[in-house]
Design a protein around this nucleic acid. Structure first.
Length: 818
RNA sequence: GCCCCGGUAUCCCAAUGGUAGAGGAAGAGGACUUAAAAUCCUUUCAGUGUCGGUUCGAGUCCGACCCGGGGCACCA
């Protein structure tokens, strides 16, 4: 008679014991194990953990626990990305303090993580909203400022009317605020930026180091986002203007095909060119119209082209033709030079504009396609140049080289690069974030807060009106905002904005190495020991924002001499999302599955196992396809094995049943390989297989007393310790061992056991299977061929035919070609 | 529109260019039981989205297309 497998009792039994043993401490000075840094993306404390967390942390835990079993000193820390809008919004709603809401939720999540048996080192936690943490945000900001990488500028910025704050480019998705889906508008504001564009080339080129170690998808998204293009800048004289205007083009070969010029309607150049002309008022009303249009309107690609002729002319530098200058909103002020040469024959946008405004179309590349002036379809194919003076007859590539050389010689242009990436806007007009450590003095201008006065702590929220109103609530904290200038001592004001919370998360992985360290943001020696992160695990939602910013900060800190590496995350695993019936879970959709309910019903281990077994980690999980009940059943089945082992611990495995021993060895080998290649679902399948084999051995084979059964049961327990720690620990105890199984060590495999006694060789004729024979794995090609040619089924088939060729792949296959 | 990724059994998913099925779910049958649950055993189901190519041999490589998912999108 066996006791029942009671997941609730097991959970309650082992949790306090683990608290005692603390198997996952890292960084003890005398620890001789080699180091590994496994990092899960830290959560935002918005209530309790949900299904998404459960998946992410289950996967990260498999990796962390695996490396511990393999004998590594694994640093696996956790913290909270605890600044941000939800806390503030909740506080406004409930009339309380964002701080209280935040830290309550952190406590809730922390307790849940502990119960979920995450293998975190609880001595290495951090909260970005702690002054001890954000002090170093401020320090880093000032380092960037000193380097000229943090600056203020006036610009038309993305504004969310609902959140009442500005948004970074990256936070506007398809024209909508990524947080609340409100249509973003534009607002002219003076804001702080970080000069990430200075690092565009390195952010792009260093991705070569990540090839194969990061998901291809993420690399592609980042490359896309940075959007480097190669082209040329060309100078155009403007009639009645002293200075020429520079335009950017990726197709300098089509220079002869330019029939007009377009400047961005919201550029200062447009305003200057139109000033004093008869169309100035028409231009101004067009400009107003443009400003009023939301991003959504602007993004619609089928939107008809609009513009105003400025009554000015540019001169084409290669043929002296007069080109009318138009202002339009299809040219962007902040990309390239804000002005383009329009070549309607070979650019669809220019052609659309030309047709709308009845402008000339001039073909200069003979691509064999139909005349764009008639079809309305610009031709972009390659071909030889026509109507292009010295370029005639050249191919597109030859023409680009030739014209750039020619322009450079005449000082009329040069080769140039451009990027889609824009500088990172970090000011936010909200309370719950890191104050920007700058003091504005009428006499001295921007004055950095001196180092010894950091951190600039947030004032108490009580008494402040946190309601969004377009300017920072901090501005109203009189006692806080009014200070004397550190430079001249005169009356001055603090910068009242706070930092984008992505600033906080762009370097937290460094702080984990020394969370208590007071002297600096991080202990350089500890960082040297632990970084870069060996394995980063998190959602693909951060493919651009967080990962790009972190890479940027790492490069900056490298240049400042604090780091000796340039890429923070050596390997990256993106887990998929947990969905329900094909769409994201949400209360409003009514398809929300509560993690706490699932855990109560099936137990922690069954949920963790379900997450890991559901499919490849990077695929989305549909909870409708997942069966926690089946996971429970399997754990039960595995657990019961431990009660059927009747041999004592320490028994000599070499005396065990050979076929079971081989199965165990093969399983361990396959499980290792599967885990290291992130095929956790396959690893689970292999454990299941071994459980089935072991069950059979006990019931109808060598029996529970055979040493091989103990060996198998222990291998199962250790394998399960990565996924289902409570069940594994309990099995371990029932097998007569002391806790913690997490530190038991991965069993060593006798290589001899991996060798198979015999393999099935396939005999084919013309690629079709005719027979299978059992052969020794060491059989030579010659022997196998001989066996095949003397096989009855084969000789019957070849009878009368002529053997043209015999392909032998010993020991697995022989293919006879007739 | 451009660029990625994926289509294998009723479902979720496996398969270094070499036996399409490892594992699970669901279904069917049976053992045990007064019965049910639990447990155990047995078992059914596809030729890999479509067409063509390379190869002795293709789910796997190449090309085109269809379908699904994702990214970018007036970036000159």
């Amino acid at each position: 008679m066996h006791e029942a497998y009671d997941f609730a009792a097991i959970q309650e039994k082992w949790l306090p014991i683990w608290d005692e043993i603390q198997p996952f401490k890292s960084g003890r000075a005398d620890d001789p194990r080699p180091k590994k840094y496994v990092l899960d993306m830290f959560p935002y404390p918005s209530g309790d953990l949900h299904m998404g967390h459960a998946e992410a942390y289950a996967l990260g835990d498999v990796i962390a626990r695996y490396w511990v079993q393999k004998g590594f000193n694994v640093m696996h820390p956790i913290g909270w990305d605890s600044f941000g809008l939800p806390a503030e919004n909740a506080a406004i709603k409930r009339g309380s303090d964002p701080r209280a809401w935040t830290y309550e939720n952190i406590a809730i999540q922390k307790a849940s993580m502990r119960r979920y048996a995450c293998s975190f080192d609880w001595d290495r936690t951090l909260h970005t909203s702690d002054p001890e943490y954000y002090k170093w945000n401020q320090w880093l900001f000032l380092e960037l400022y000193k380097k000229g990488l943090a600056y203020r500028k006036d610009s038309a910025v993305n504004w969310c009317p609902s959140c009442q704050t500005v948004l970074a480019n990256e936070q506007v998705v398809a024209g909508l605020c990524e947080r609340c889906d409100t249509a973003a508008t534009k607002k002219k504001l003076n804001q702080w930026y970080l000069k990430i564009t200075d690092y565009a080339d390195r952010l792009l080129d260093d991705m070569d180091q990540l090839e194969g170690a990061w998901p291809e998808k993420v690399l592609m998204m980042q490359r896309n986002w940075i959007g480097r293009s190669q082209g040329a800048e060309v100078q155009f004289e403007i009639e009645g203007r002293a200075e020429p205007v520079s335009i950017y083009t990726t197709r300098p070969d089509t220079l002869y095909g330019a029939t007009f010029m377009v400047v961005a309607v919201d550029s200062s150049l447009a305003a200057e060119l139109v000033a004093g002309s008869s169309v100035e008022s028409a231009f101004n009303s067009y400009l107003e119209e443009t400003k009023a249009a939301s991003d959504i309107d602007r993004l619609a690609t089928d939107r008809p082209k609009s513009g105003v002729f400025l009554e000015r002319y540019a001169i084409n530098p290669v043929n002296g033709e007069r080109l009318p200058i138009w202002a339009s909103d299809y040219v962007l002020a902040d990309y390239g030079t804000g002005a383009i040469m329009a070549v309607p024959a070979h650019d669809q946008r220019d052609l659309d504009f030309a047709k709308a405004m009845k402008l000339d179309v001039k073909v200069v590349v003979d691509s064999g396609e139909e005349d764009p002036a008639i079809t309305g379809i610009a031709t972009t194919g390659s071909g030889s140049l026509i109507n292009s003076g010295s370029l005639n007859g050249l191919t597109k590539e030859e023409a680009i080289t030739a014209i750039v050389k020619e322009l450079e010689a005449k000082d009329l242009g040069k080769s140039a690069k451009n990027y889609r990436l824009r500088d990172w806007l970090i000011s936010r007009q909200r309370y719950w974030g890191t104050p920007i450590p700058i003091i504005h003095c009428e006499k001295c201008g921007e004055v950095p807060v001196p180092q010894d006065q950091l951190p600039v702590e947030l004032p108490d929220a009580s008494g402040l009106d946190l309601k969004p109103k377009g300017s920072s609530p901090l501005g109203a904290a009189e006692d806080w905002v009014n200070v004397s200038c550190p430079s001249c001592g005169g009356a001055a004001k603090r910068d009242a904005d706070t930092m984008d919370t992505f600033f906080d998360s762009s370097w937290y992985f460094l702080r984990y190495t020394s969370v208590q360290f007071d002297d600096r943001a991080f202990d350089v020696d500890e960082v040297k020991t632990w970084l870069p992160v060996d394995q980063y695990v998190g959602g693909v939602t951060h493919a651009i924002l967080h990962l790009l910013y972190s890479r940027f900060f790492t490069k900056v800190l490298h240049d400042l001499g604090y780091l000796d590496f340039v890429e923070p995350f050596t390997r990256l695993l993106n887990q998929g999302m947990v969905q329900m019936d094909g769409s994201a879970m949400s209360k409003s959709r009514g398809n929300l599955v509560k993690l706490s309910d699932e855990l109560a019903e099936h137990g922690v281990d069954a949920i963790r196992l379900s997450m890991v077994f559901a499919g490849p980690p990077e695929d989305d999980i549909d909870w409708a396809d997942v069966s926690p009940a089946a996971s429970f059943k399997f754990l039960n089945r595995a657990w019961r094995l431990s009660g059927d082992v009747t041999s004592e611990p320490g028994v000599d495995f070499t005396k065990g049943d050979l076929s079971l021993r081989k199965a165990t060895a093969k399983s361990l080998h396959d499980i290792s390989f599967a885990v290291e290649t992130f095929r956790f679902n396959v690893a689970v399948a292999r454990v299941m297989e071994l459980v089935n084999v072991t069950r059979k051995a006990i019931d109808s084979g060598c029996g529970g007393s055979d040493p091989a059964v103990r060996e198998a049961a222990q291998a199962i327990a250790i394998s399960l310790s990565l996924i289902a720690p409570y069940t594994a620990e309990d099995m371990w105890a029932r097998l007569g061992h002391k806790p913690a199984i997490a530190l038991a060590g991965w069993p060593t495999i006798d290589a001899a056991l991996l060798e198979e006694d015999s393999v099935t060789a396939i005999l084919q004729i013309n690629g079709k299977i005719k027979d299978r024979i059992e052969v020794s794995p060491n059989i030579t090609g010659g022997e196998l061929e001989k066996l095949a040619l003397s096989n009855d089924l084969i000789t019957a088939e070849i009878a009368g035919g002529e053997v043209k060729k015999v392909i032998v792949r010993a020991p697995k296959l022989v293919n006879i070609v007739l």
